[in-house]
């Protein structure tokens, strides 16, 4: 009787018409041990389903609450830096290094002017070497003489 029932269920099962409860009945039947010899074929199938049901996912998932970086704060920082820059700029423009005492001022100015003239002289001294070039070109003039003589020689040949 039970066997008859199981066979019917198996047929329905293969047609995909069994309900979940009926499938559970089948599973229980095949897993309880003694199975009719001609139905032995189904046993590994249900055993496999059973075994696979127990497989578990063991790897853990890194669930980090990564707060997203808020780009608004970048603009705030930029404004702060800008303000600081402007502040320091203002502070430094107040002190230009003005000298109140006229005698001191004259000394300072003459000192710096002297420095300028010294450096300028250094520059002109090196320009003196240009004279050497003039000398060189003067000696080149002798080449003309050679040309003259060669012309004379060629003429006489002609």
């Amino acid at each position: 009787m039970v066997l008859n029932n199981i066979e019917k269920l198996l047929e329905k099962y293969e047609n995909g018409e069994t309900t979940l409860q009926e499938e559970q009945v089948l599973k229980n039947y095949f897993l309880q041990g003694t199975v009719a010899p001609h139905l032995e074929v189904y046993k590994p199938m249900f055993t496999y389903f059973m075994v696979n049901q127990q497989e578990q996912f063991t790897k853990d998932v890194p669930l980090k609450t990564t707060r997203k970086f808020n780009y608004k704060w970048i603009s705030v920082a930029a404004v702060a830096v800008l303000m600081l820059g402007v502040y320091f700029k203002m502070a430094s423009t107040n002190n230009l290094g003005t000298i109140k005492d006229p005698e001191m001022a004259f000394k300072e100015v003459s000192k710096s002017l002297e420095m300028i003239s010294k450096s300028l002289n250094k520059g002109t001294a090196t320009v003196g070497y240009l004279n050497e070039i003039d000398k060189g070109t003067a000696t080149l003039g002798y080449l003309n003489e050679i040309e003259n003589t060669t012309q004379i020689i060629f003429k006489s040949n002609n």
């Binding site: 497989e55 996912f57 790897k59 890194p62 669930l63």
Partner: peptide
């Protein structure tokens, strides 16, 4: 576990299935 087993059914290899499961769970998160 069901996600993992389905992934394993399709991808066959355990490692791939683990990666897939992790990926799916992270996407959900």
């Amino acid at each position: 576990d069901k996600v993992y087993r389905l992934a394993k059914r399709l991808l066959v290899s355990t490692e791939e299935a683990e990666d897939a499961t992790q990926e799916v769970l992270l996407k959900l998160w």
